[in-house]
Design a protein around this nucleic acid. Structure first.
Lengths: 110, 110
DNA sequence: TATATATATCGTAATATTGCTATATAAAAA
DNA sequence: TTTTTATATAGCAATATTACGATATATATA
């Protein structure tokens, strides 16, 4: 098929998957890393930073935005982008659970 | 195309993307959550836990294993799965950087 | 050894993703 | 108002992913 059976999973599981999937591309990792470095910048800077055509970058930005991982605001002629806490806070809890688990389990692994 | 230009990104960016992408499916989130809950279990338990056919689950397990997020060891007739610290440790640093950034930036966002 | 049980692989259909060129839109500057 | 600059969208080709039934493999038990 190629179609994910989202209806059989919980909202939380689907939401976490959407967030992780959005992060799961090297171009989008690069965008996030760049925004960490410069705090905020206009779209054009990201286009210059990446080895991809402008429409492709625009598409990646859209996906990050839809997932709630970045925000974009008009700033004169261009659009200023920065990280969106909301999205990252949602995944934070998941990885904290993983870490707590990994720290607490001693040699109970198979 | 449909082909990611991995050669234009750093090894770290590609590695992080592979890990996030592996997590980016509700079935694989469900598998990880189940392993957190029960510490370790055999493949069949996961098949029973998920609303997917056995070959589909097997495929998801393979992807998590290839990404280094779970480990599987023979245990008699069946295979025992548990989380693999290695993979999760690799993403940990990335999210720590994100969190540090989000905490430190005040209203410097656009 | 033969059979049962557990898991993986093959092959395939449906759908999604990636990346591009061409083009549209929208704000700013001339 | 026209032009420039910045970003988004449409449309498309190549490739990847998801899911399944059928089947292979591999260990354990009888």
């Amino acid at each position: 098929m190629g179609i994910t059976k989202t209806e059989h999973f919980t909202d939380e599981q689907n939401e976490l998957a959407i967030l992780a999937k959005a992060i799961g591309h090297p171009a989008r990792i690069a965008i996030i890393q760049h925004l960490i470095k410069v705090n905020s910048c206009v779209c054009g800077d990201i286009v210059n930073e990446l080895p991809l055509a402008q429409p492709t970058v625009s598409q990646h930005l859209k996906e990050l935005k839809n997932a709630g991982l970045i925000k974009g605001n008009f700033e004169g002629n261009s659009i200023c982008y920065c990280l969106n806490e909301e999205g990252f806070n949602k995944i934070k809890g998941f990885f904290q659970q993983v870490n707590t688990h990994l720290e607490n389990r001693k040699n109970q692994c198979c």
